[in-house]
Computed example of a mutant assay.
Amino acid sequence: MIDVGMDGARRSRLENIETVDLVPGQDREIWQSFEADAGVPFYPGPGESLFRFFILPPPDDALSLEDVHAIADQFFQQNGIEHCRGEASRNPFMHATPTADCVMLLSGHVQLLLDHGAPVDLRPFDVIRQRETNHSWVNVGPGPAVLITLMHGVPAGVV
Rank of each mutant, 00 (worst) to 15 (best):
R85L: 09
I71E: 02
E48I: 09
Q74F: 05
A145V: 00
G143M: 07
H109T: 08
E82I: 09
S89M: 08
D67K: 01
E66K: 11
G5E: 00
P58C: 05
G80D: 07
H83R: 11
P41I: 09
S64V: 04
V146R: 03
G86I: 00
N91A: 04
V110I: 03
P155H: 09
R13S: 04
A96K: 08
I17H: 14
G39W: 00
A62P: 07
S49M: 11
I55V: 15
V138N: 07
M151C: 13
F76D: 05
L147R: 08
D121S: 15
A96P: 05
V146G: 01
V120L: 12
R52S: 13
A156I: 00
W137N: 12
V68D: 00
A156E: 09
P98N: 03
E66L: 06
R129W: 12
R28Y: 00
P57R: 11
F54E: 01
P144I: 00
Q77F: 09
D37Q: 14
T19I: 06
I17N: 13
E48W: 01
F54S: 01
D37M: 11
P155W: 05
H109S: 14
I2V: 14
S64K: 02
V20L: 12
P119N: 13
V154Q: 04
I2Y: 10
R11L: 09
D3Q: 03
R28S: 04
E87W: 05
F125E: 12
V140K: 10
H116A: 11
C102M: 14
S12T: 13
P44I: 12
A118I: 05
F125P: 06
L105E: 04
S136W: 10
S136V: 03
R28T: 05
F34V: 14
S33P: 05
A72K: 04
R129A: 15
F93K: 00
Q74C: 04
A36M: 02
Q78C: 04
Q130K: 06
M94R: 07
V4F: 01
F42Q: 15
L114T: 03
S12I: 09
F93S: 02
L105M: 04
A100Y: 01
T97N: 13
V120P: 11
E29M: 14
T97L: 12
I55K: 00
V154N: 02
L63S: 09
D21M: 11
L14F: 07
H95Q: 08
H152T: 13
M151F: 05
P59R: 01
V158I: 04
G47Y: 02
E48F: 01
L112F: 02
M94W: 08
I71P: 00
G80H: 07
A145L: 07
A88D: 14
V154L: 10
N134M: 09
Q78S: 15
D73Y: 10
V159H: 11
G157R: 06
E48C: 07
E35K: 14
D21V: 10
Q77R: 15
M1W: 08
M6A: 13
G5H: 00
